[in-house]
């Protein structure tokens, strides 16, 4: 028999594997290990999230962030309004319209949400 034929015959013999009697039990053992690993991972992520949340919340309270954010918000609204006036005098209608500055904030918020969605999508694709 030519060497190539021997090789093919040996390959075929290797490929012929009868199913073992405990194939189901083996699969269940693997699945139990996967389940255990998954449960451990969930507990770890949950614990890390909780610890992070508690630390974050305590930092927010300790640093008096809410009053700072309020002050920064009114200041940034003033800066944004003057900026928009300088950049685009045509946008007067928007600022002076019935919705005024609220509309600008709404559009900015939507833009941030859209950006978040795009970033999420890109991360998923990667």
């Amino acid at each position: 028999m030519a060497e190539m034929e021997v090789e093919r015959a040996i390959e075929r013999l290797f490929a012929r594997t009868p199913e073992m009697a405990d194939a189901d039990a083996f699969a269940e053992r693997v699945q139990r290990r996967l389940d255990r690993g998954w449960a451990a991972r969930r507990v770890l992520i949950g614990s890390a999230g909780m610890v992070g949340g508690v630390i974050g919340a305590s930092q927010l309270i300790m640093s008096n962030l809410f009053s700072r954010a309020e002050a920064a918000s009114s200041e940034s609204a003033r800066v944004l309004t003057s900026g928009v006036r300088q950049l685009a005098p045509q946008a007067e209608w928007l600022l002076n319209g019935p919705a005024g500055i609220e509309a600008v904030w709404l559009v900015a918020g939507l833009a941030v949400v859209a950006m978040g969605l795009v970033l999420t999508r890109i991360i998923e694709e990667i």
Partner: peptide, 13 residues
Amino acid sequence: RQAFGELVRRHGS
């Protein structure tokens, strides 16, 4: 994981 379990069942032996 159940889908993977089926793969293990098929190829484990």
